[in-house]
């Protein structure tokens, strides 16, 4: 049996705003294994963004427990949280979240900067990852000089460079046209093939249909959590090996 990368038990989270308290997550249980390809679906207000923030150690939770790769993630100081994020999690966002005044290499190398990797080593590594994403020729361009698809590939390279255990992708194709969306999804699937767990938050059925397992959220509870029957096994990916 493979090891679980995410283990969530009875997770509760409320947002308190003055006297109003908004109960967003109402007792979630979830178990995601190493190397899984999962999508989390739900309409806006279902709590999927909140869940993503908790899973990404960007936010605390109120009750229950969250284990990341066997480590109990509980209230921790920001320095420690930053270290865990850096080591275990790669982020891919809808709006790319690249640093606009840094070129492609610098953006990709940034997680390694915070690991204290030497300049030469991290730039070499960044170039290597850019090469894998087909962006070597764009290494010294600023994000503003890249297309949407290229930006997202850049973001994926950045997410991968610290060799994380899992990638959290928040609507990764939300800002892309359908052709580019397909390319990015293929890329994410290929990354997943190398054994990195991929968790994609989306509200598009089309995207969710490409994942092996679909978790549906509704009003802060898990509505359904099932294998995707329509998932096509692709054995063609010899990528990143």
């Amino acid at each position: 049996m493979s090891k679980s990368i995410i283990r969530v038990e009875a997770l509760h989270k409320s947002y308190v705003n003055g006297k109003n308290s908004l109960h967003v997550l109402k007792g979630l249980d979830m178990n995601i294994q190493e190397g899984e390809l999962v999508s989390i679906m739900g309409s806006s207000g279902s709590g999927k963004s909140t869940l993503l923030n908790v899973l990404g150690i960007l936010d605390n939770y109120d009750a229950g427990s969250y284990h990341l790769d066997g480590i109990h993630i509980t209230r921790m100081n920001e320095t420690k949280a930053a270290r865990y994020r850096n080591q275990y999690i790669g982020f891919v966002f809808q709006s790319f979240n690249l640093i606009s005044f840094k070129n492609a290499v610098e953006n990709v190398a940034l997680p390694l900067y915070y690991q204290g990797v030497s300049r030469k080593k991290r730039n070499d590594l960044a170039l290597e990852y850019l090469g894998r994403m087909g962006l070597r020729d764009w290494a010294h361009h600023l994000p503003s000089e890249l297309s949407g698809g290229q930006k997202q590939r850049l973001a994926i390279a950045r997410a991968l460079i610290s060799k994380p255990k899992m990638i959290l992708a928040d609507e990764p194709t939300g800002a892309l046209d359908s052709q580019t969306s397909r390319e990015v999804m293929d890329l994410l699937k290929e990354v997943n093939q190398t054994g990195i767990a991929m968790i994609i938050v989306t509200h598009e059925n089309e995207i969710a249909a490409q994942t092996r397992r679909i978790i549906r959220l509704r009003d802060g509870i898990i509505e359904s959590d099932e294998e995707n029957a329509a998932f096509q096994h692709e054995s063609s990916a010899a990528f990143l090996s």
């Binding site: 320095t79 930053a82 270290r83 850096n86 640093i99 915070y114």
Partner: peptide
């Protein structure tokens, strides 16, 4: 704010 947020998400500690 956004840039600093990105840095933090990528592993920048508050001290850095």
């Amino acid at each position: 704010t956004k840039e600093l947020g990105i840095r933090k998400a990528l592993g920048a500690s508050p001290w850095s």
